[in-house]
Simulated assay, not measured.
Amino acid sequence: MCVLILQISLDTMAATQKCYAKGSCAPGPVPEGHLRIYSMRFCPFAQRTRLVLQAKGINFETVNIDLKEKPEWYLEKNPQGLVPTLELPNGKVIYESPITCEYLDEVYPGKKLMSSDPFEKAQQKMLLEDFSKIVPLFYRIPGTKSKGEDISALETELKEKLSKLNKVLVNKKTKYFGGDSVSMIDYLIWPWFERVEAWQLKQYLDGTAELKNWTLRMQEDPTVKAIMFKPEDHKVFFDSFMAGKPNYDYGL
């Protein structure tokens, strides 16, 4: 038996709904002329895909998933149970954030977010691979600190990796990682920097002037501004997440 949850067809500017959890009914077919993204409001990985959907002006609806009590029907769509997942009008699904983002840029018209130059595209994918090694530190430092354990080695590692990221901008002499305008690589990196203040990691940006300037520019990007949360909202969710009781529906 499933519990019916009201699902409203959303466009790119609409607010999301409360999470679907275990025991809920699956939503109906994807509305004509739309995509559906299975997401979680505070998930940085899902935010990547929502940024690309927003930037390209794609019509979509959002179905948020309770990642602690996942609906049975969602695991049939994505056996990994992670977000984001894209569902197409024909019922086919695509998941993993970089893959969904690249698909959207290749299939949908409008501003191209990925470079058409094969070498530049490869450079950005290499940069994303390097950044993927930074992401775990954003979680490990607060988690280790909350246990009262020594975080000095983790702090040193994070500072070194952020310094290397800063050097990329210094060497490129551009405003953004992909050039002088926001591109795919910027949207793929941004979500964790939106959270540095809430996760008490902002001090690790000291000494990375170009990276700091990049964060300030990204905060003014219309796409980022359209879907970003305030630091205090991120903090409330992150605190609940760290306590083992994530409040996915905070603020709704």
Results as ranks from 00 to 15, higher is better:
Asp180Ser: 08
Phe193Tyr: 12
Ser152Val: 07
Ala153Arg: 12
Leu169Ile: 05
Asp186Arg: 05
Leu154Ile: 13
Lys159Thr: 15
Met184Val: 02
Leu169Met: 04
Gly179Val: 10
Asn166Leu: 05
Ser163Lys: 15
Leu169Trp: 03
Lys161Met: 14
Leu158Asp: 05
Ile189Arg: 00
Pro191Ser: 07
Ser181Ile: 08
Leu162Met: 10
Leu154Val: 11
Leu158Arg: 00
Tyr187Glu: 08
Asp150Ser: 07
Asp186Thr: 12
Tyr187Ala: 07
Lys161Thr: 03
Glu194Ile: 12
Gly178Val: 11
Leu158Asn: 02
Leu169Asn: 01
Pro191Lys: 00
Glu149Phe: 09
Val170Ala: 02
Lys161Trp: 05
Lys172Pro: 06
Glu194Trp: 05
Gly178Pro: 04
Trp192Val: 05
Thr156Ile: 12
Lys164Asp: 11
Pro191Asn: 01
Trp192Phe: 15
Lys172Tyr: 01
Asn166Trp: 04
Asp150Gln: 06
Val182Ala: 14
Ala153Ile: 11
Val168Tyr: 10
Lys167Gly: 03
Glu149Val: 03
Ser181Glu: 14
Asp180Glu: 12
Lys167Ser: 12
Leu165Asp: 05
Lys161Gly: 09
Leu169Tyr: 05
Ile151Asn: 04
Val170Tyr: 01
Asn166Tyr: 09
Thr156His: 09
Asp180Asn: 15
Leu169Cys: 04
Lys159Cys: 11
Phe193Ile: 13
Val168Cys: 05
Asp186Gly: 10
Lys172Val: 06
Lys164Asn: 14
Glu155Leu: 10
Ser152Lys: 15
Ser183Gln: 14
Thr174Leu: 07
Ser152Met: 07
Phe177Pro: 01
Lys173Val: 07
Asp186Pro: 05
Trp192His: 13
Lys164Ile: 06
Leu162Val: 11
Lys159Phe: 02
Ser163Asp: 09
Glu194Phe: 11
Val168Ala: 04
Phe193Pro: 05
Leu158Pro: 01
Thr174Val: 11
Lys167Glu: 14
Lys159Ala: 13
Tyr176Val: 09
Gly179Cys: 08
Asp186Leu: 09
